[in-house]
Amino acid sequence: MRSSVLTVSRKLKFYQLVILDQVVQSGSLVRAAQVLNMTQPSVTKVIHEIESYFSAPLLVRSNRGVRLTELGELVLRRARTMLAELRALTDEVDAYKEGISGHVVVGTLISASTSLLPLALRLLKERAPQVLVSIRIGQFDQLLPALVVGEVDLVIGRVPDDWRGREETRTLSVDQLYDERLSIVGGTRHPLHEQAVLDLADLHSYPWILPPPGSLLRRTVNGLFADANLALPTNVIESLSVLTNVALMQDQKTVGLLPSETARQLSGHGGIRSFNVCTPLHFGGIGCFYANSRNLGPAAKLFRECTQLASERHVIPD
């Protein structure tokens, strides 16, 4: 028998969806129970209730934890959209009753600015100190799907060069905030820092840290070497972990790439220094992504305004 909205609303409850979401995020019933401050049998009972309603398992349990079935993936995808709307409703009610408050979830690409995001957060807290902000770090192909279904409210990061032609533009929009440069960096005592001006070819034979294939930054890097008529280096570690990369560069041989703002903030005390490369390196635009189909709650709307204000105050040093 086909379900109707009325029958679903009578049997399926929001708190059950919250528990299902937390079980999947935690990877196990035990850890989810700890996060939710519930007993493990209580969590198990709720999962059984949902599965009984759908007459099919939503989770596969094993010694390694739990994973979603195909039906479970479908249910959770829709559930997360509903939970995002419920969070927005809660924010709007709180804002109406108490003034600006609520919760905003901000995703940030690993390549995002290290100064604009903190500045936007400070501006938000000056205006609405009671707003809770959760930061999620990830890559483009992780955060934008989460933005579509409402797991995150906004994403701050680099705008792909081919953004206008991408499929995501049907469901997402972006505020262009500013343009970022790219720096090639190494340890502060790297021997090539003694040279006044360098070409990419001068650094080619050294060990390199490159972004993983498929990442936005890797496409930029591939283009840099192609434009210089150089093959990619062969002595390579692939990593997007800034702290790991900086530690690797302390051998005073390894070189890598960072957005210039990040490189500037880490220079000196961070143990790295930018090379003086003769050709200016363009990293790309930094933007604030949001979903077209979903109205932002008061807290997220205010944060979006703060990112625009922060971009106006953001100064990129020469």
Rank of each mutant, 00 (worst) to 15 (best):
179 D>C: 00
26 S>C: 13
73 E>H: 07
111 S>N: 09
259 P>T: 03
151 E>P: 08
212 P>K: 14
257 L>M: 13
55 S>R: 13
315 V>N: 07
97 K>T: 07
244 T>S: 10
222 N>I: 06
293 S>Q: 12
312 E>D: 10
51 E>V: 11
48 H>D: 14
188 T>C: 11
161 D>M: 08
15 Y>M: 01
181 R>Q: 06
138 G>S: 12
143 L>D: 05
84 A>Y: 03
10 R>P: 03
76 L>T: 01
81 T>P: 00
246 V>I: 14
172 L>W: 06
169 T>D: 06
138 G>R: 11
85 E>C: 02
56 A>E: 15
27 G>L: 10
111 S>W: 04
306 C>V: 10
65 G>L: 11
93 V>L: 13
193 H>V: 11
57 P>I: 10
249 M>H: 02
255 V>Q: 05
166 R>Y: 00
178 Y>T: 04
148 V>Y: 11
215 S>P: 07
215 S>K: 14
246 V>Y: 05
288 C>V: 13
109 L>F: 15
128 A>G: 14
181 R>D: 05
83 L>A: 08
13 K>W: 00
290 Y>A: 07
260 S>H: 12
232 L>H: 05
306 C>A: 08
230 L>H: 09
270 G>C: 07
56 A>Q: 15
279 T>Y: 13
52 S>Y: 01
153 D>A: 09
296 L>R: 04
131 V>C: 04
151 E>Q: 14
193 H>N: 06
263 A>T: 04
252 Q>C: 03
234 T>Q: 14
298 P>C: 04
171 T>L: 08
194 E>S: 11
112 A>H: 06
189 R>N: 03
127 R>S: 02
216 L>E: 07
10 R>W: 02
20 L>M: 15
314 H>M: 10
318 D>F: 03
84 A>P: 01
250 Q>P: 01
148 V>L: 09
313 R>E: 00
244 T>L: 05
